Amino acid sequence: MKAIWNNTIIAESSNTRIVENNHYFPMEDVEDKYLKTSDSHTRCPWKGKASYFHIEIDGQINEDAAWYYPEASYAAKPIENYVAFWKGVKVTE
């Protein structure tokens, strides 16, 4: 699977995990040079507290376009520190 935004591959992995129709990429398969830490957080009732990244490519910023669970709940441990994308990031094979 690939995550693409602004004609750039942000993540590529054959080891994504699918939860609620989202592909979660292992952190080591994500190009962290495009990720900028965000102060945003949300809480999922069963996965726990999510943290976000902005994606920055060629001076363009897609705010809070990636999220992950740094300390996932017991039920969501398989996706702890895996990254998912939205806000126009195309996830495709």
Rank of each mutant, 00 (worst) to 15 (best):
W46K: 11
T42P: 02
I61W: 00
I55G: 04
G48Q: 03
K33R: 15
Y74A: 12
E28D: 14
H54W: 06
E63S: 12
K33V: 15
K77G: 07
F53P: 02
K33C: 10
G48D: 04
Y74H: 13
E56S: 13
S73H: 07
Y74V: 08
I57D: 07
E20H: 09
F25D: 05
P45I: 01
H54G: 04
I55F: 04
Y69P: 10
Y69S: 07
D29T: 05
K36R: 14
I79A: 04
S13G: 03
A75T: 08
L35A: 04
E71Y: 05
I10K: 06
I61S: 07
N15T: 14
P70F: 05
F53N: 07
V19M: 06
T16I: 11
D29R: 10
S14V: 02
A76M: 08
A66G: 05
N22L: 13
H54R: 05
I55M: 07
D39I: 12
H23I: 08
K77L: 14
T16M: 01
A66L: 07
T16V: 15
H54S: 03
H41K: 14
T16N: 00
F53C: 03
W46P: 03
D29N: 14
K33D: 12
S38L: 10
G59K: 04
K49S: 02
P70A: 04
Y68K: 05
A72G: 10
K47Q: 05
D29Q: 08
Y24N: 11
T16P: 02
N22W: 01
N21P: 01
H23A: 15
S38R: 09
P70Q: 05
Y24L: 06
P45D: 09
K77H: 07
Y68P: 06
T42C: 14
P45S: 12
I61Y: 02
N21E: 15
P26M: 09
A65S: 10
I18C: 01
E28L: 03
D32L: 14
N21K: 11
A66R: 05
K33G: 03
F53I: 05
E28C: 06
G59F: 12
M27S: 13
Q60F: 12
E31V: 13
K77T: 14
Y34V: 11
T37R: 10
T16S: 02
A72W: 08
A50D: 06
